[in-house]
Write a protein that binds this DNA or RNA. Structure first.
Lengths: 218, 218, 218, 218
DNA sequence: AATGAATGAGGTTTCATTCAT
DNA sequence: TATGAATGAAACCTCATTCAT
């Protein structure tokens, strides 16, 4: 180890910077809310100075938009792919889809985005409308098809599918919001894995077809 | 009824001012978030000028605290009273309690407070901790007792009651958040009444004891 | 003089403030140019703090626009009134008009505005076009009518009146620009009164009809 | 045409860079003013990147100084040479000198420099003082000698020569300023050639000796 | 009590300058 | 040499808070 490398004050990382900035922005925006988030904090977490943010994004709002517009749709496409490729019971597909959502979103930092949009919908209605249509309603539509097929098949009981979908996912979404709000304050933070297991169990029970002879009697 | 109630020519508003200010603050804070809310907007909605706010509250943050600390606890006490006075099945009590919460909170402007706290927990951890303990966990504890009693009695199936409670209420809470975020953007906004009916139905089914001989045969 | 009046930290002067701010802005903008002018300097000269500027003008650019749009046109109207009310030789009228311009603009702080527009035309083409049409060309048109009448009458020699007007006023305009640029640096600053006298003399000689035997002899 | 002139494959630009940068800087500074001019724009127009500017000049202000200090003095020396070499009437010399100024400065990009200095005198008093003394006053002194000689000879009428010189050149200077401010906004831009012809005519008439029998009568 | 003009701290944004590549 | 990514000082602007009226 010869006496070289005076540890340069900064490095050029043009390729990685945008994603690093987005990651940092997501964390700060989710923690503080868009208005209370300071861009300098975002920069610091990304390991750059304030001005550098502006080399990659035109401003604070652009950061928010890039965040929302790019992040979740791919996850959604994963879930849609599951549906296309599935063969088997509707119940199994439903479980697969919810599981994918849980692992792909709820357990990842992406979970911050729904929380962020929930908080900021009032200030950014355009962006919120995009999120509503491109993510939420698209997700619901997919789930709804599956649920209605399950009803047709008699796997699930007859329920208004538009509402049933929202209600079915509600416990998972609540966990997402919880994670980014009160969970850090809990004495013993919520055990996400157990929560998911129980929530899935209860949600499935909630839509299960009435037990007309479970394992049939004859 | 003789000359009681003088009906004064000019009404002393001073006594009502604090509540009017709190109402206005709640509306603005929920819509925009605490940081993005402008105090002048709060004042305008309360029909007073900016300076007047400071005659009743020591500042913006004081408004937030007063809001959170005063508003929901009374509703909670109502619900607790229901439990104390109830005689009948656990299921009936559960329904009563959820119904009270729905009408007392979800359908009222108070519904904004949970949304607000969810958004601001990161910026006001003290306040959030208060809300967590004095409202959320207190509510859960109550529900939990009821649910466990129901399990004892065989009305509900055996589930980890701490989680079951959160999950049971999740659909109602989601409606609360929805109302203050995406609902104003929906083409045809969610029908809250239908939603509640279906959600309650599904949630109850989710915890119902297995139909081992409904109307039992022996 | 009893021991009252603790000299308040500031005073309410809502009515006077806009004009005071415009005066201060004119001075600073002319001295430094729009871009280099700091709003805090403008505020300080007007005797207020930074924020106060924004109570009366929506921003730096609005200050510039208000300045340009409001200030000179009235002076121009004065000059136009002179023309309407005049009876006598064209030469006399021309002198009156130039004299009015000299006293009303060149010798007043308004003289800063042409200098400012000259400097900023490249950055504010819209505003510059307004100034060109509403002030400069309007002034020229007026002067031109007088000059053409003088030519008709034989008071002035035949010249392309559009150019003659520009050239006739040029020495006065140069003094205006000089005043706000190099004059403060001159060892012995230009004597404006003498300058005007000589300039007017030369300019009039420049357009005077050739002395072909005034009251011609033959 | 044999193999003369190797026409190198790659051209060493380094030698021409400084002048290219100065040309670009002049254009941008004149258009936007020094403060509003972005160095990146200068670099772009010179066909290099931002950093390269610093290889040739120590900074933005150095560009400005180099611009002003180097550009016009040579033109002035040309004009001084005319005076030295002239033999003939003062009027002829005056015309020669003004014509040289018109062609060498007014019609060239160098015309931007006076406009620039006029705008920036308030921000760069040192530089402005240099320009005042090394260019403006030097030019005036030269013109003044010629004009006074003409007065001695009876070619021009008696006028305070210090002022007469400023006034005599004013129309030409105005054209210079006009060119870089409002001319680009005119519907039909000023015809510089006609302007000069008329301006010279009027200016000469303005100083001409009284027509004591022009082409004498009697 | 009430107003709203005035303040000034604090955030976003720009851009001259530096420096790793 | 040349580049352009990165920096950080400095300016604009907002708005919670104060205070003259």
């Amino acid at each position: 180890m010869t006496e070289t490398e005076p540890t340069p004050r900064w490095q050029r990382r043009a390729d990685e910077r945008p994603q690093e900035l987005l990651d940092a922005a997501l964390a700060v925006f989710v923690e503080r809310g868009f208005a209370a988030a300071r861009l300098e904090e975002v920069a610091k977490r990304a390991g750059v100075s304030k001005g550098t943010v502006y080399l990659y994004f035109s401003g604070k709002e652009a950061l928010l938009k890039a965040l929302v517009e790019s992040a979740i749709v791919p996850q959604l496409e994963n879930i849609e792919a599951l549906a296309r490729e599935h063969s088997g019971s509707s119940r199994e597909l439903l479980v697969k889809m919810v599981d994918a959502m849980w692992r792909g979103i709820a357990l990842s930092p992406l979970s911050g985005i729904p929380k962020l949009m929930l908080s900021e919908a009032g200030n950014f209605p355009e962006l919120a409308r995009f999120f509503l249509e491109a993510v939420i309603q698209r997700h619901w539509a997919l789930m709804r098809r599956v649920m209605e097929e399950g009803m047709e098949r008699g796997e699930f009981r007859r329920l208004p599918s538009d509402l049933a979908v929202r209600i079915f996912i509600a416990p998972m979404m609540m966990a997402v919001f919880w994670k980014h709000s009160f969970m850090p304050l809990e004495e013993t933070p919520l055990d996400m894995a157990r929560y998911f297991a129980v929530a899935l169990d209860m949600a499935l029970a909630g839509i299960a077809a009435p037990a007309t002879n479970p394992k049939g009697i004859s």
